[in-house]
Amino acid sequence: MSIEATIRDKLERALRPTRLDVVNESHLHTGHRSSPGTGESHFRVRIVSDAFTGKSRLQRHRLVNETLAAELKGKVHALALETHAPSDVSD
């Protein structure tokens, strides 16, 4: 399973989002000194979940980081997060 698929699967199971966008941005970092060059190292996640209701931005980010702890310790070099409760968005 790809890192992108793993991220999606773990977040869906743990946080049951109403919206989840996982974007692989690794190609934007090709050739950077700190980039591992794996093609799956830099991701942007936009997630909307009831689990974030009443939580601060820091608490929301911690929930995501805890869910993806193994990936963040290993193959994922950078993770940009947009975390929202359903009441935060007006899709």
Rank of each mutant, 00 (worst) to 15 (best):
L11I: 02
T67V: 10
S90D: 08
H42Q: 05
T38C: 04
A80D: 11
E4D: 00
F52K: 05
G39T: 03
R16S: 15
R33E: 13
P86R: 04
F43N: 02
K75G: 14
T18R: 05
S56T: 15
G74M: 06
S34I: 13
K55G: 11
D50W: 02
I47F: 01
V48A: 04
A70P: 01
E25R: 09
H77K: 01
A80Q: 13
T30M: 11
A85Q: 02
K73H: 12
S35K: 08
L11A: 04
I3E: 00
H84C: 15
E40C: 04
L68V: 10
H61W: 08
S35G: 14
R60N: 12
E66Y: 07
P17A: 04
L20S: 04
G37F: 06
T6M: 07
V48I: 09
T18F: 00
T18A: 07
R60T: 12
R13Y: 05
H61V: 07
D9N: 12
H42L: 03
G54N: 10
S90W: 02
K10C: 01
L58W: 05
T30C: 08
L58K: 00
A69F: 08
T6D: 14
H27K: 09
S87V: 09
L72D: 07
S34A: 14
A78E: 07
R46W: 02
L20R: 03
A80V: 12
E40G: 02
R60M: 09
T38N: 01
S90I: 06
V23A: 13
E25A: 04
P36W: 03
L28S: 03
H29S: 10
A80F: 09
S35I: 05
G39D: 03
R44Q: 14
P17M: 05
E71R: 05
R60A: 12
V23L: 13
E12N: 11
P36F: 06
L63R: 02
L20Q: 10
V23M: 12
L63S: 07
S49A: 13
G31A: 08
F43H: 04
H84D: 15
D91G: 12
L20D: 06
P86G: 10
H61T: 03
P17Y: 01
L68K: 08
S90R: 07
S41F: 03
R16M: 14
A70H: 07
K55Y: 07
D9G: 02
I3K: 06
L15G: 03
G31Q: 07
L81H: 08
L72T: 10
G39W: 06
G39V: 03
V48E: 08
D9C: 04
A51G: 10
A69K: 14
T38L: 06
R16Y: 06
D21Q: 13
A70K: 07
A51R: 12
N65Q: 10
E71A: 11
R19E: 10
V89G: 00
I47A: 01
S56F: 00
R13Q: 15
P86T: 07
E71T: 01
S90H: 10
P86S: 09
S2D: 11
D88S: 03
S41Y: 09
R19G: 03
D50E: 15
R13N: 13
T30K: 15
A5G: 08
E82N: 15
D21Y: 10
H42C: 01
A69W: 02
T83M: 01
T30F: 08
H61Q: 14
D21P: 00
R33P: 04
L63A: 10
A5M: 09
N24Q: 09
L79S: 07
H29R: 11
G54T: 06
E25I: 05
H84M: 15
